[in-house]
């Protein structure tokens, strides 16, 4: 297993990325010198305390925001702006409220000029994959929070990107729906393997999902520690090893006030 992982190539290579925000009151360094490699088809979780620069980190890694310094390469190509070779799942779901589920999922292929029959077929495949068959014509506000996030995942997948970035996608869900969605995202990922960079503040969620956890510090955010997670899937939240690791990471994580 480990051997195989070393063999697989790095999809994301981030070198020395920092991000500073400047406003009237001065400048704030939000992330500082992050170096990170993510391998093909790896499920990587970025975990950090409350208000640390997790979101900024994933925004910069995905090209949603430019880095102040440093470079991010995806498949060897330097990233400077958003692009359809990357998928993004937002915490706020960011669905287009005026489009149906189908309209949302096929949005990417549509704006890229893919013809209707082809993009419909593709969208239908991913709608089925996330378990929303029968809801193609519903509007987002007719769906529950968990279902909305399924749409977000299908939409990101539908462009068939190389990498998927997910910024705390289950943050607004209740604990039980969250467990369901964690099982679901693993099922989806195992069916349609992609490289996933998943941001969360929930250590339990990270241990359940990840091949590797990268623990971030408080701002200015740096990498504090990495954990390789080798527990077989499906994982058990109450397994003693699982709980022990959860405690270890909890203690290691920077404190928030």
């Amino acid at each position: 297993m480990d051997e195989a992982r070393h063999m697989s190539k790095s999809i994301i290579v981030a070198q020395g990325i920092s991000k500073t925000f400047t406003n009237k009151r001065g400048s704030t360094k939000v992330i500082e010198n992050i170096n990170l490699e993510v391998r093909e088809n790896e499920f990587l979780c970025l975990v950090g305390p409350g208000q640390c620069g997790k979101t900024t980190a994933v925004n910069v890694l995905s090209g949603l925001e430019p880095a102040s310094t440093g470079t991010v390469k995806i498949n060897g190509k330097t990233i400077t702006r958003p692009g359809p070779d990357r998928g993004f799942v937002f915490q706020s779901t960011a669905l287009y409220p005026w489009l149906t589920v189908m309209g949302n999922v096929e949005y990417g292929p549509k704006v890229r000029g893919i013809k209707k029959s082809e993009r419909r077929e593709k969208a239908q495949y991913y709608i089925n994959l996330v378990g929303l068959e029968g809801f193609e014509h519903s509007y987002p506000n007719q769906l529950s929070g968990g279902m909305q996030q399924r749409v977000g995942i299908a939409r990101a997948y539908c462009n068939e990107p190389v990498v998927l970035f997910m910024d705390q996608p289950f943050g607004a869900l209740d604990a039980q729906t969250r467990y369901l969605m964690q099982e679901e995202i693993i099922r989806i990922w195992e069916t349609a393997k992609r490289t996933i960079v998943f941001v969360t503040n929930n250590i339990e969620e990270a241990i359940y999902l990840a091949d590797r956890i990268v623990l971030l510090t408080n701002t200015p955010t740096q990498i504090k520690k990495e954990y390789k997670i080798d527990f077989p899937r499906p994982r058990d939240y109450t397994d003693p090893d699982f709980l022990a690791l959860r405690e270890e990471i909890t203690n290691e994580m920077d404190k928030t006030l």
């Binding site: 958003p82 998928g87 993004f88 937002f90 960011a94 949005y107 990417g108 704006v111 890229r112 462009n159």
Partner: peptide
């Protein structure tokens, strides 16, 4: 919503 704008850019609009 700037998030929707970012989302559309990411999807290739």
């Amino acid at each position: 919503d700037p998030v929707l704008v970012g989302c559309s850019k990411m999807l290739g609009a």
